[in-house]
Nucleic acid binder design. Structure first.
Length: 278
DNA sequence: CCGCAGGCCCCAC
DNA sequence: GTGGGGCCTGCG
């Protein structure tokens, strides 16, 4: 595909970072693995990256500063782990998935992604996002391949095409959100306290407690957000409630109180535990 | 006794 | 997953 050997690519020294865990923990969907490399479509760029050793990232398509921000490498990892390491279950998860990070993805794409996630699975979400990008997003060529940038707010302006992207009942939510939400609304949420930001998001059609928490956690820096999906529900009930059925509201309150200001990281570790048992 | 807020279940989307 | 309806409960 390229005459350049990997030796010519820049390297970034990393600590407490695992690329696979970070890219494959269900927070991002536009990730492709080709040979030994991951290709991640982030905003208007195609990031090509691999972890050639535990402490080395080789990359192309972005600069160092971008990588540090996107992968949240400036977060105090030891501190985060110390906060959520409350019991033997978490200790095990933290050890097993060490280096998992919560990325800082684009809030708009994150919002649409998780609207697509309602009653779906990961391959289906990926299909929806690929289709939406192909139908509405700008095309770019890189590494001999064609890629589509994710369409911005206002660009998802054709209901029929949104339906053609196989979004099903989510199509009307996507169209409505496209017509009412812009970048400034989303960046404004950053400045609000968690409860207010969440309330503003759940005002949007197709966005309830879970999806709001995903957007807050994965794109707006609210590390205390604690999304309850079916996987988390199952594992929380199993590990902390002797398999008793607990309402989502109660599980949410439990997670936030028990794990504290980095509850969202705890949620991701638990998600990984739940998925590997599948 | 009656009315409404809050919690929960159900089901179409 | 969400949202809206139906239904039960509890307090005023």
């Amino acid at each position: 595909m390229s005459f350049y050997s990997s030796k010519t690519l820049p390297k970034l020294l990393v600590k407490d970072f695992n690329l696979c865990h970070t890219l494959l923990c269900g927070q991002l969907f536009r990730v492709k693995k080709i040979d030994a490399w991951f290709y991640v479509i982030v905003k208007n760029r195609i990031l090509k990256v691999r972890q050639s050793s535990p402490e080395t990232l080789e990359y192309h398509g972005a600069d160092k500063r971008f990588l540090i921000d996107f992968f949240a490498l400036d977060e105090p990892y030891d501190d985060i782990i110390a906060h959520i390491d409350k019991d033997s279950h978490m200790t095990r998860a933290i050890k097993k998935f060490h280096g998992l990070r919560i990325v800082r993805q684009d809030p708009w794409e994150c919002l649409i992604s998780f609207i697509c996630s309602a009653a779906a699975n990961i391959p289906k979400i990926q299909l929806n996002l690929e289709n939406l990008s192909e139908y509405f997003g700008e095309k770019v060529k890189l590494h001999g391949l064609e890629w589509h940038i994710f369409p911005g707010p206002g660009q998802l302006n054709n209901y029929k095409r949104i339906v053609m992207a196989k979004t099903g009942f989510r199509a009307k939510h996507i169209k409505a959100v496209n017509d009412t939400v812009d970048h400034s609304f989303l960046s404004f949420l950053n400045k609000l306290p968690y409860p207010e930001a969440k309330k503003a998001l759940t005002q949007l059609p197709g966005v309830g407690s879970k999806i709001a928490d995903c957007v807050l956690l994965f794109s707006l820096g609210f590390s205390e957000a604690f999304p309850i999906d079916t996987w988390i529900k199952k594992i929380l009930q199993e590990l902390y409630f002797k398999n008793k059925t607990i309402s989502n509201g109660e599980l949410h309150a439990f997670g936030r109180n028990y794990f504290g200001k980095y509850a969202g990281y705890a949620q991701q570790f638990l998600y990984m535990l739940a998925r590997e048992k599948k």
